[in-house]
Nucleic acid binder design. Structure first.
Lengths: 113, 113
DNA sequence: CCCGCTGAGTCTACATTGCCGACATGATGT
DNA sequence: ACATCATGTCGGCAATGTAGACTCAGCGGG
């Protein structure tokens, strides 16, 4: 069993957040698109999918195949979705972050006088 | 060599933030105290110090010995401090977090209608 | 037609982080 | 002295992060 603590890793948080941002259109490429656009972070497909799979094993997300009817590309795609467990793990991370950064706003924002 | 990306891990962020919170009194025990109080996270000394040491190797923090004059305990203690590099790494994490959570406030806060 | 390109996903392997628990050390107080 | 307590140190194993090479199926040009 997992044993003691089970916190979300840094990248796992990002991935889960990206899925939430995408609402219903969270498939592979879109997720890495959000990651790059919002977090300025480029990851290889391997990196992304292995995290996605681990997150699934932990019950934090689920997915279903979606026949790609869109323009180019005819492959079935996986559409991801955060589970309630995933959401509450994310909330815990969020709360920890908020508590830890409380009072440090000035230090953490780039100086813009 | 290390090269490519160098993002802070989840725990590394917490540790750096704890040091910032403590201003000038950031020594071992105090750091894990903040971690527990603010992030509800308990870690063993080994866990803490190994992260601290890695952070130092990466140039994100420095420390100096401090003769413990306080009540009990007479050992020299290490007083930690975040370097400018550490601070900017933290700012990057902070910005990524802000961008990724933008628009998800409702979803991320515990329902308290 | 056939062939190579492309996009979505899979697999394998390795580097970094996270996390202990056991040990070392020195000051204290009894 | 000796047990004790607070700090750090060590070595190692588990979990996370990350790449890159490989598969598969349609598309389009020669």
């Amino acid at each position: 069993m997992g044993r003691t603590n089970n916190f979300l890793g840094e990248f796992e948080q990002m991935v889960l957040l990206a899925i939430l941002q995408l609402e219903a259109g969270a498939f592979g490429a879109a997720i890495s698109g959000v990651l790059e656009a919002r977090a300025d972070r480029r990851v290889s497909r391997g990196a992304l999918y292995s995290s996605l799979d681990r997150l699934e094993r932990k019950g934090y997300l689920r997915w279903e195949l979606e026949a790609a009817t869109s323009a180019r590309a005819g492959q079935p795609m996986r559409r991801f979705e955060v589970t309630p467990e995933g959401l509450s793990a994310l909330r815990a991370s969020h709360e920890a972050w908020v508590n830890m950064t409380d009072g440090l706003e000035d230090v953490l924002s780039p100086r813009v006088p």
